[in-house]
Design a binder for these strands. Structure first.
Length: 359
DNA sequence: AACACGGGGTC
DNA sequence: GACCCAGTGTT
């Protein structure tokens, strides 16, 4: 028992050491690796959740330029934060980030918290981000478990249970935690994620030149291409949105902000009728809450399409000319053509607006 | 434990 | 079309 434990320890030490050495040679030069300031690191971690480095990098720079400090973010309007997030997806990240900034001002006197428990207490920060920020900024010895780590560990230890099951994730977290180099948690966490991103990739991993090859169970069993295993089958629903582009004589439009638990919460849209019925010619009064307005249809768009993780969305835009100036009523606002660019819109609406040169 | 939440990229 | 990406919050 004692001997076995010692052997495992030695192997884990070697694996950790290999990862660190590999990282020192192969690390990408990424902007958030040049600082120990918790604020930009926090921003980078939230932006990068379920987002590729390639896509997130530009958002990172724009975000910090607009909100250079935690205090600046906390005092911003939520709509301004969402506008900066436009096109990035998973908008709850932006809303939670904003709320968390205000929370830090209130609960922690504007100082980003320095313990794992306090960091993870912030909205939008879960086990991954708390371990990442905690280790990078404060040297807290908690291992990060992201998609890269799930893949690396599941292959290294030949874990054939679905990694998206909580029990498996817990097991992987424990295994990864034993690997973590407590001398430098920050560097180890960067190393294992970078290794997954560059060497132990989902498709076509570089096993031939892999420095962990001799330790890798999946390689020995020739099942690298079968791991990690996932159980979840996502089923998609189809939804059809009919948007009313109601334009008055002053080139103003009726818009409203999405609320509730649906997609795109907090983003803006045009008066919406959701109906999966096709080809029924819509009149102005088929749209919700616009009763007194008079106008006539001057154009119907082609069908716009967008695929989300759980939905196929189709959108059709009905352009009506209103006879009189629009007034705000119910939840609707009236905005001018030149103000369209100031609001955050779902991608499918951005596509329409760009096609019509309204954005 | 299962599910929803976006958009871009790859094969 | 299926799957992945520096995951988290809700039910």
């Amino acid at each position: 028992m004692q001997k076995k434990h010692k052997n495992i320890s030695k192997a884990t030490e070697q694996v950790s050491s290999v990862l660190i050495q590999w990282y020192r040679k192969n690390a990408r030069d990424l902007p958030w690796r040049h600082t120990r300031d918790p604020y930009p690191i926090w921003i980078s971690e939230v932006i990068l959740q379920q987002t590729t480095v390639a896509q997130g990098e530009a958002y990172y720079h724009r975000f910090l330029k607009k909100f250079p400090t935690l205090a600046a973010l906390a005092s911003a309007e939520q709509d301004a934060v969402l506008k900066l997030w436009e096109g990035l997806g998973y908008y709850s990240r932006a809303r939670n980030l904003h709320a968390a900034a205000q929370d830090v001002m209130n609960r922690f006197d504007g100082q980003f918290p320095d313990t794992y428990e306090n960091i993870i207490s912030l909205k939008g920060i879960g086990p991954y981000a708390a371990a990442a920020i905690g280790s990078f900024v404060y040297g807290i010895p908690r291992v990060v478990v992201d998609g890269n780590v799930l893949r690396v560990i599941s292959r290294l230890y030949g874990i054939e249970e679905a990694v998206d099951l909580p029990a498996t994730k817990k097991q992987i977290t424990l295994l990864a935690q034993t690997l973590l180099d407590t001398q430098d948690p920050a560097e180890f966490n960067q190393a294992i994620m970078e290794f997954g991103a560059i060497n132990c990739t989902y498709k076509k991993p570089s096993c031939a030149t892999c420095p962990l090859r001799q330790f890798c169970t999946a390689h020995a069993k020739k099942i690298v291409d079968q791991l990690p295993l996932k159980s979840k089958k996502i089923k998609k629903t189809t939804r059809r949105f009919h948007f009313l582009i109601l334009e008055d004589p002053n080139n103003c439009f009726l818009v409203d902000q999405r609320t509730g638990k649906d997609v795109w919460q907090g983003l803006f849209q045009f008066p919406l009728l959701e109906s999966n019925k096709l080809d029924h010619e819509l009149s102005l009064h088929d749209f919700p809450h616009i009763e007194p307005i008079k106008g006539k249809l001057v154009g119907v768009s082609e069908l716009y399409k967008q695929t989300l993780t759980h939905q196929y969305i189709q959108a059709c835009f009905y352009h009506f000319r209103a006879e009189a100036s629009l007034k705000r009523h119910n939840s609707y606002k009236v905005i001018s053509k030149s103000e369209i660019k100031d609001y955050a819109w779902p991608k499918i609406i951005v596509n329409y607006l760009k096609d019509r040169e309204l954005l």
